[in-house]
Amino acid sequence: MSGRGFLRALVVVAGLFGAAGVVLAALSAHQPDATRLGSASTMLLFHATVIIGTVLLIERGLVQRVVGLLAAAGFVVGAGLFSGDLVLRQFAGHSLFPMAAPTGGTLLIVGWLVLAVAAVWPGKSA
């Protein structure tokens, strides 16, 4: 996949995360004891915008491209694990795998730190 193709794929994932976040917000409002769904919704909606923002920062050359892509990948995998685990616990009553949500949360933290590194290691056009 070309560099622009990967960036486009990140935007597609962000759109899917955003849609899933809205669906989970609605479900959390209409199901009893659905606090997990609210947390999953927030994580997906928030990181959908962060993924789009990271793509734009990469395109503008404000962050180093490869390091920025690593940060974006961390946001995708981290939010997916965190939210996926919470949704599975809500509907199936079991975890995705042991420590899935904390692993996702840790990847999100690392993604934010990697994004900071990408900003102090600017691209060629910065």
Rank of each mutant, 00 (worst) to 15 (best):
I58A: 01
G93R: 07
V77M: 11
I51S: 02
S95I: 06
M99W: 08
I52L: 11
L57F: 00
F82D: 09
T103Y: 00
A40R: 01
S39P: 08
V110S: 03
A126Y: 12
A100K: 00
S83G: 14
V77N: 01
G61R: 02
V117D: 07
L69R: 05
Q90H: 15
V117R: 06
V114W: 06
A73H: 03
L44Y: 13
L57E: 09
L7E: 08
G53K: 04
V13I: 13
T35H: 13
V67Y: 02
A119G: 12
H30K: 10
R8K: 13
I58N: 00
P32I: 09
R4T: 10
I109T: 10
A72R: 04
A71I: 14
L10M: 06
A9E: 03
Q31Y: 15
A19Y: 08
P98Y: 06
L70H: 14
S2K: 13
L37T: 04
G3C: 05
A29M: 12
V63I: 15
A34V: 08
A14G: 09
E59K: 09
A40L: 11
A9K: 01
L108T: 04
A9Q: 08
G21V: 13
Q31C: 10
L24M: 14
A25F: 11
G53Q: 11
I51Q: 03
P98D: 00
L16H: 08
I109N: 01
V63Q: 07
G5E: 07
A26W: 11
T42R: 08
G104I: 10
G5Q: 03
L45E: 01
G105P: 02
A20V: 06
G61I: 15
A20S: 11
F46D: 02
V50M: 11
F91R: 12
V117I: 15
L62V: 08
F17E: 06
L86M: 13
L69H: 01
I109H: 03
S2G: 14
G74T: 08
H94I: 14
P32G: 10
F75Q: 03
V55G: 03
L96Q: 00
H47D: 13
Q31P: 13
M1H: 10
P98T: 00
S2V: 07
R8F: 14
F17M: 02
A48M: 05
L107H: 01
V77E: 00
V50L: 11
L115R: 13
V12K: 02
S125L: 12
S41M: 02
T106K: 01
L115A: 09
A73E: 10
M43C: 11
A26R: 05
V13H: 03
A118C: 14
M1K: 05
A48P: 11
L108W: 06
V117M: 12
T103K: 00
T35M: 10
L45T: 02
L24H: 04
A48N: 01
G93M: 09
L7N: 04
Q90A: 11
A9P: 02
G104L: 06
G105S: 01
A118R: 13
D33Y: 02
A34W: 04
G18V: 05
A9T: 00
G80E: 10
Q31I: 15
H94C: 03
A71R: 09
L37D: 04
G104E: 09
V87I: 15
